[in-house]
Design a binder for these strands. Structure first.
Length: 499
DNA sequence: AAAAAAC
């Protein structure tokens, strides 16, 4: 929904409104229902071009208002060319939107449904991981607009649940992602089933040679719409990286969440198992968290996303399933628990914050072995990322002797402890004992006893040592690895098992 | 080296 936020556009072209595009009253009503008046830059560019019937190659990330940029004119065109004599039972598919991930399909579909709510147009979403029956019933009942992930759509086509013979408009959303995910053969199979004469819209966050090739083969004299520089990070996003020991990463993530009192944050993990573990850890320390990744059932994925959007959970720990496309409004912060292997994924991940003109923070933790990944990222975004210091970071004792509470950076926030009533899962039964003793502060307790780690007694990290930054990494402009050295020193003679 | 997507 934030995709149609007018903040960014208002700064650019305050005078332009959706009404200026000659959109149908039903569409304008739907927009005003949601309080949207001014188009974002990409909407201002895309809507007139799509209305002209031109093919479009759009370089835009999610959060720029892309979805409304194509769905509003699609609805308008379908309405304008509606065959009024058509019986309600016969609603052939006339617009098809393909997306790489299921969650993105759902979001696009939600937006389309909202924009078309006052029109007779029907839309539906089709994606895997769910029973086919409900989708089949709706498809057979007839819909003008289908939003789908490719695999399941082909499944429905093979089962003759849907025909694409009447499709006039095709949208390939997040086309770069679809290529990355190996959807090209599926895309080709689907496109072969479409009428030759149709309008094509392709959106991609990046402009790789492969994307250009895809555009050349599928689009006809496309109008190029480019809103953000490709591969550029939103300048509204403050980026900080923290160098720590590997085994500290999860504690630092927890610390950052508490220190900044983050109530809506996505934490990215490179692995599904890592996401689950981190989520469980955060839950055990009283932070409302859920994991979302490809090994979760579709029900779990949707439940986690819904809970996050509702604010029932504060932290969504995600793999790159959520890196692109997820439109979660007004995310103030994203955290990388792992630096992504693919530098481009970094851009997509941090694109979840600083959306639609708002500012945001992108925080990353990394360890010595990730220096190369960080260098790749900085090379891609053509800027050096601020090296952060973990002021006030205290790793508390992990044993029963550890003192806690009175010194911790969040020691005053005893109310955190109450959250643990939600508590660890049943299988973690014995870990409940500490939380039942009442409020506790950051870092204490509720740790799985399988942790054979020795107690870590760390003092607060003093900012006083942060003075000269240029000596450690000469030439790169990068800041030295001070935080890590400091913490390593504080760790004393503990065995390091990293690498 | 890992993630996503059809059954």
């Amino acid at each position: 929904m934030s995709e149609t936020s007018n903040t960014a556009a208002a700064a650019v072209e305050p005078s332009v409104t959706f009404a200026d595009f000659g959109l149908a009253p039903e569409i304008l009503r739907a927009l005003s229902d949601q309080g949207y008046v001014h188009p974002t830059p990409i909407q201002a560019q895309a809507i007139p071009v799509v209305l002209q019937g031109r093919d479009v190659m759009g370089a835009a990330q999610t959060g720029t208002g892309k979805t409304a940029g194509f769905s509003l004119p699609i609805i308008q065109l379908l309405l304008a060319h509606a065959n009024s004599s058509m019986s309600p039972a016969r609603h052939p598919v006339r617009a098809l939107v393909l997306t790489p991930t299921r969650e993105l399909a759902v979001q696009v579909a939600d937006n389309v449904k909202a924009y078309a709510q006052h029109t007779p147009l029907r839309s539906t979403v089709v994606f895997g991981g769910m029973d086919m029956k409900g989708q089949t019933t709706i498809l057979k009942g007839g819909v003008e607009i289908v939003i789908a992930t490719p695999g399941r759509l082909l499944d429905h086509i093979e089962q003759k649940n849907v025909s694409l013979a009447q499709v006039q408009m095709l949208v390939m959303d997040e086309a770069d992602r679809m290529l990355d995910m190996g959807f090209l053969p599926d895309l080709q199979r689907i496109i072969n089933l479409l009428p030759k004469k149709r309008q094509n819209l392709m959106f991609s966050a990046t402009f790789s040679p492969e994307i250009k090739k895809l555009a050349n083969s599928f689009l006809q004299q496309p109008v190029l719409i480019e809103v953000a520089r490709s591969n550029a990070t939103a300048d509204k996003v403050t980026q900080i990286v923290y160098k720590v020991e590997d085994e500290q990463k999860r504690d630092v993530v927890e610390f950052l969440i508490r220190q900044r009192e983050l109530k809506q944050v996505i934490v990215f993990s490179n692995t599904k198992i890592g996401a689950s573990r981190l989520s469980r850890h955060l839950e055990q320390t009283g932070i409302k968290a859920s994991a979302i990744h490809g090994d979760k059932t579709q029900q779990e994925r949707m439940a986690a996303l819904d809970a996050f959007k509702r604010g029932d959970i504060e932290v969504l720990v995600a793999t790159d399933v959520a890196a692109r496309g997820l439109d979660i409004s007004d995310l103030p912060c994203v955290i990388n628990f792992d630096l992504p292997y693919n530098a481009e994924d970094y851009v997509h991940r941090i694109g979840r914050t600083g959306r639609a003109g708002a500012s945001g923070d992108a925080l990353s933790v990394y360890s010595d072995k990730d220096e190369r990944l960080l260098a790749d990222i900085e090379k891609l975004i053509k800027q050096s990322i601020t090296r952060g210091e973990l002021n006030g970071f205290v790793v508390r004792g992990r044993g029963r002797d550890a003192e806690r509470g009175e010194r911790g950076p969040r020691s005053e926030r005893g109310e955190r402890g109450e959250r643990s009533e939600r508590g660890p899962r049943r299988s973690d039964g014995e870990r409940n004992e500490r939380s039942e003793r009442g409020p506790r502060s950051y870092g204490a307790g509720a740790l799985p006893r399988r942790e054979k780690v020795d107690p870590w007694f760390l003092k607060p990290y003093e900012p006083s040592n942060s003075a000269p930054r240029q000596d450690s990494n000469p030439g790169t402009g990068a800041a030295p690895a001070k935080p890590k050295q400091k913490i390593a020193a504080l760790l004393g003679g503990l065995p390091k098992q990293a690498q």
